[in-house]
Design a protein around this nucleic acid. Structure first.
Length: 470
DNA sequence: TTTTGAGTTGTTCGA
DNA sequence: GTCGAACAACTCAAA
């Protein structure tokens, strides 16, 4: 019996893994993972992603009875070597959609085929392929609503989920793999990760548990509740989905079973946004580095390093901003509502280029995803496809009062302000001196003064955007 | 081909 | 406190 490789990439699961099923059906299974920083180059994973990956691979390896083989280096070389030295009949994988991966994978595919090795690629990461959801004229959508309503919802339903393969017969041997997952050196040398891990159960089982909790509790008030960062009306599935610990089909079909109301529809439309981002990335591969709207190439961005650093550290003096940035730093995650607020603040109030935000999120988010991250930053900045209009500038005071009305989220992440009365929580600089003193807040000493004036910076942003059209 | 209605998530101002 | 309009102009999608 010959050997069939399943090459794990963004599909670190056994359930509903079509490529894995193909490999298992074809021979003795050789499950591999390759850390390919060489080919990824500037798109190599950030620190938070690497940490998640470490634990996800450990979990996957356990599910595979310790049979996962891990490698490090250019995937093309690793796979070529495996096929030269062993009797490999088939190589299977689930498709990826980043330009650098598409190019790499097609090279590998041609190379393997020319050596008589069968290659099977499947769809394990999207509900619909990007080339499947197109306008009537055959070109890709650039606007979300018709993409979702006319494209996705009128396309054939996503395929039913495949169960995890049973009684897998593994190929025996060493295959030149690294001894352990630790040899990939994905964990940080300074152990900043220890306080983050208790927030998560990384791996396929943890992903399923998140989905079940959401089905039982979160979805009941999703449409409105998802805007409240102190509440739990969100799924927190994004890092699990990014690494493919759970398939989007599993989530989609589970959502269907949750009912047919506006909460479920809103949740499904968020899955639609994930599809939309991937479709944009596939059809516009330059999206991660280039403004979708090229007139923004002339935008007069600021270059204030001190402001960038204050934003990154959560020391802007605007409590809702600082809460979000600290949640990110301490947990590898940020609530979506707050992502929009901090994004708008960086790009519009600080007038810093969206790529600074994109890069910081890339390094610190567990769910850092090239498609979603770049599409969303371009949306916030106003230069994306179907972007927010330029005059839509979030006010961090209003947003805090509106979406964290009790201040629970803000006080959780900015404990310096835990005794600030609600009235001034989002603008402590306006509070009477007595009140600040009673709350133990000394502005400029134990909590920063605001680094920009909201009104003035808003006007400045409006002026900058205006300069683009003239 | 032309036309028409619409477009994730806001804020401010004035009535 | 609440409500509607203005904030710009453009591109998109479909009839």
């Amino acid at each position: 019996m010959t050997i069939a490789i399943h090459w794990f990439r963004q599909d670190l699961r056994l359930a509903d893994n079509p490529a894995l099923c193909q490999a298992v059906a074809r021979g003795q299974l050789l499950p591999i993972y390759i850390l390919d920083d060489d080919t990824a180059a500037e798109f190599a994973m950030g620190g938070a992603s690497r940490l998640w990956l470490h634990h996800s691979l450990k979990s996957l390896n356990e599910s595979l009875s310790g049979q996962l083989r891990v490698f490090c280096g250019p995937a093309q070389e690793v796979i070529a070597k495996l096929c030269q030295e062993h009797d490999i009949s088939t190589v299977c994988w689930n498709r990826c959609y980043e330009a650098w991966r598409i190019e790499r994978d097609s090279t590998i595919k041609e190379q393997l085929k020319s050596h008589g090795v069968e290659v099977i690629s499947s769809n394990g990461s999207l509900l619909w392929e990007p080339w499947q959801v197109l306008k009537n004229d055959g070109t890709p959508y650039r606007v979300f609503t018709p993409f979702f309503k006319n494209g996705c919802l009128k396309a054939p339903e996503p395929a039913p989920c495949k169960p995890a393969p049973e009684n897998i017969e593994f190929a025996e041997g060493h295959f030149g793999a690294l001894e352990t997952i630790e040899d990939l050196h994905l964990q940080p040398s300074v152990r900043w990760d220890e306080p983050m891990l208790p927030h998560w159960q990384i791996g396929e089982a943890g992903a399923l548990e998140k989905l079940n909790t959401f089905a039982e509790e979160g979805v009941t008030n999703y449409k409105e509740g998802r805007n409240l960062p102190a509440r739990n009306y969100i799924s927190r599935l994004s890092p699990h989905m990014h690494f493919g610990e759970i398939s989007p089909r599993t989530v989609w079909h589970a959502a269907t079973l949750m009912g047919d109301d506006e909460n479920v529809y809103t949740f499904k439309s968020e899955l639609g946004w994930r599809e939309f981002s991937y479709s944009l990335l596939y059809h516009f591969p330059a999206m991660p580095r280039q403004n979708m709207s090229r007139k923004f190439d002339a935008f007069p961005w600021s270059d204030d390093q001190a402001a960038l650093s204050a934003w990154q550290k959560g020391m802007t003096g605007y409590p809702i901003i600082d809460a979000g940035m600290r949640e990110l730093w301490q947990t590898g995650y940020m609530h979506n509502r707050v992502r929009m607020i901090v994004g708008s603040f960086l790009v519009k109030n600080l007038l810093l280029h969206w790529h600074h935000g994109e890069a910081w999120f890339w390094d610190t988010l567990f769910d850092a995803d090239l498609a979603s991250n770049s599409a969303s930053w371009q949306w916030v900045a106003g230069c994306g496809a179907d972007a927010a209009p330029y005059f839509r500038i979030f006010n961090p005071i209003t947003q805090g009062e509106k979406f964290d009305p009790d201040g629970e989220y803000t006080r959780r992440w900015v404990p310096e302000l835990k005794d600030m009365p609600k009235k001034y929580l989002y603008q402590p600089w306006e509070a009477p001196a007595m009140m600040l003193k009673a709350a133990g807040v000394e502005l400029g000493v134990n909590y920063p003064n605001p680094i920009v004036d909201i009104k003035a910076s808003r006007e400045r942003a409006l002026g900058a955007f205006k300069s683009l059209s003239s």
